Computed example of a mutant assay.
Amino acid sequence: MGKRDYALLRLLWGNALRRNEVCQLNVRDFDPAGKTLRIFGKGRGTQAEAIDLGTATVQAIADWLEARGGNQSHDTPLFTALDFANSGHRLTGDGIRKIVVRHSENAGIKKQMSPHRIRHSAITAALDATDGNVRKVQKLSRHRKLDTLMIYDDNRGRDQQDITEMLDGMF
């Protein structure tokens, strides 16, 4: 369970994936040699896109698949439930949410967490790390409209306060 959850959390954080994008993944979508994952993004129907994975995320997913063992045909879900009643079935969106909530609480995070909050935090952290390079971060977030991404950028800083302080010093 720990290896599955670790791979899942790394994927949510490192690639800012949507919960539904993770739910749809099959073993065939993971290419460890190419360090890519084929996802079906929001509003894209049957149109897939390949995203790049970080080395640590590739290793975490490979470790999970090795520990899982058993039948891993190409049509097998990448992430499966491990509880007694649903073992081997595709992990649902609610199952992913429960994993995120459980680990967040165990880590002492007081704020209510969700897969979308991880996505939001990852996008905001990427904007901080790139000094607000919205074009680069748009590739990570896969937002079609730059206006949507700008909401994250506007919320990350205290630009208005900085400008007010600057103007206040010019008086």
Rank of each mutant, 00 (worst) to 15 (best):
V58A: 09
Q59S: 13
Q59I: 13
A60D: 12
A60C: 13
I61Y: 09
I61C: 04
D63L: 06
L65H: 06
L65A: 04
L65M: 11
A67S: 12
A67H: 13
A67V: 04
A67C: 03
R68A: 11
R68N: 12
R68F: 08
R68L: 11
G69C: 03
G69S: 03
G69I: 05
G70M: 05
N71T: 10
Q72S: 09
S73G: 15
S73C: 10
H74V: 11
H74P: 04
D75C: 07
D75N: 14
D75E: 15
D75I: 11
T76L: 00
P77W: 05
L78C: 05
L78D: 05
L78P: 07
F79H: 10
T80H: 00
T80Q: 09
T80W: 00
A81S: 13
A81D: 00
A81N: 06
A81P: 00
L82G: 01
L82H: 07
L82A: 06
D83E: 05
F84P: 00
A85T: 13
A85M: 10
N86Q: 14
N86K: 14
S87K: 15
G88H: 06
G88F: 04
H89Y: 06
R90E: 03
R90G: 02
T92G: 10
G93T: 07
G93I: 06
D94T: 13
D94Y: 11
D94R: 14
D94S: 11
G95C: 01
G95W: 01
I96T: 06
K98N: 12
K98V: 05
K98F: 04
I99V: 15
I99A: 02
V100I: 12
V100S: 08
V101E: 15
R102Y: 10
H103P: 05
S104R: 10
E105K: 15
E105D: 14
E105L: 14
E105I: 15
N106E: 15
N106T: 13
A107K: 09
A107E: 08
G108P: 09
G108A: 08
I109C: 03
I109V: 15
K110Y: 06
K111S: 12
K111G: 08
Q112M: 13
Q112L: 14
S114R: 12
P115V: 07
P115A: 05
H116T: 03
H116Y: 07
R117T: 11
I118L: 15
R119W: 06
R119I: 09
H120K: 11
S121G: 03
S121R: 04
A122N: 02
A122Y: 02
A122E: 02
A122T: 05
I123E: 01
T124L: 03
T124V: 12
A126L: 01
A126F: 01
A126C: 02
L127A: 00
D128L: 09
D128P: 00
A129H: 08
A129Q: 12
T130V: 12
T130I: 11
T130D: 10
D131K: 14
D131Y: 08
D131C: 07
G132M: 04
N133R: 06
N133W: 01
N133K: 03
V134F: 00
V134I: 13
K136E: 04
V137I: 04
V137Y: 00
Q138A: 02
Q138M: 04
K139A: 13
K139L: 14
